[in-house]
Amino acid sequence: MPFGYLRIELLRMLRNKRYIIFVVAFPVIFYMINANLWGAQTTEGGVRAGVFLMVSMGAYGALAASMMSTAVPWAQERQSGWLRQLRVTPLPNTTIILTKLAAALLLVLPSLLLVVLAAVVTQGVSLTAGQWAALIPAMWLGTIPFAALGLVIGSLLPVDTAQPVAMLSMFALALLGGLWFPPEAMPATMKDIADVLPSFSYADIGWHLVSGEAVPLSDAVTVVIWAAVLGVLAVLGCRRAVTRA
């Protein structure tokens, strides 16, 4: 993978004020506010709400980062002619797509790790070494379907349309996935919808890990299936976008 191109992709997003404010800062702020309000409460299993909230806000920030770093930038690159510039370089089309996905995964880390840091420092969240070793990689790699969805949106829609569609998709996945309020509080219809969404299964993996429970096979299968389907669509859409640039 050409690390020069990857470095350019990372720097472009890190200099984007909207990414810093809405994707990195907001999840931390939301966590701090809600954790101070009800983070000391405990669940039926004896786990503090602040720990569950860490997973929820970390998942939201990671989901937002993976989509915001793919959908709109990719649509902008198609429209601005940047993809045409890349086509005259020695970079194969597959490398361009994989680099974009790798950049999206790396850009997930600031939001995810800052929420974890805020939970540890301000709420005294403490997990075993094994729980941390399972939680962070699971929540990091679990964003692949959302990054792929962002690439699909950016490949098919113009910039003016891609941005609101990406935002609406992001908010819908967070809301229906139970990232903003406990899934138990959802109406029955919303709960049924949540059960088939990758956002709920993604967060549910984290909730089980911090509870010291085995991850349900259904959650892992749901995330993998969504990653596979959206991944194929992303590759097809990106190849089409690069070829027609």
Rank of each mutant, 00 (worst) to 15 (best):
I8T: 12
W226V: 09
S66D: 05
L109A: 14
L233W: 09
P110A: 11
T94P: 02
V24Y: 00
E213N: 13
E213I: 07
L107S: 14
P2K: 10
F200C: 03
V224L: 15
A185V: 02
T161L: 14
S80L: 03
V120D: 09
D195H: 04
V232E: 12
V242F: 13
M170N: 15
P2V: 10
L63T: 01
V215R: 03
M32Q: 15
A228M: 13
L230W: 10
V116I: 15
M186W: 00
A102V: 08
A148Q: 01
V125E: 10
Y31G: 02
A227H: 08
M170W: 07
H208C: 12
F200E: 09
L127C: 10
P183H: 06
L141R: 08
S56T: 07
L109M: 14
L53D: 14
T89A: 05
S211I: 00
L173R: 10
G4S: 14
I97E: 02
L141M: 11
A64I: 00
E44M: 08
L14M: 15
Q163W: 06
A62W: 05
A194E: 01
L157P: 01
R239W: 09
T89F: 04
P92H: 07
I193G: 05
K191P: 00
L156R: 08
L98N: 07
A185I: 04
P187H: 05
P137L: 08
I8K: 09
V232N: 12
I96Y: 05
N34R: 13
A172H: 03
V152F: 04
V47R: 08
T128V: 07
F171N: 09
P92V: 09
T95I: 04
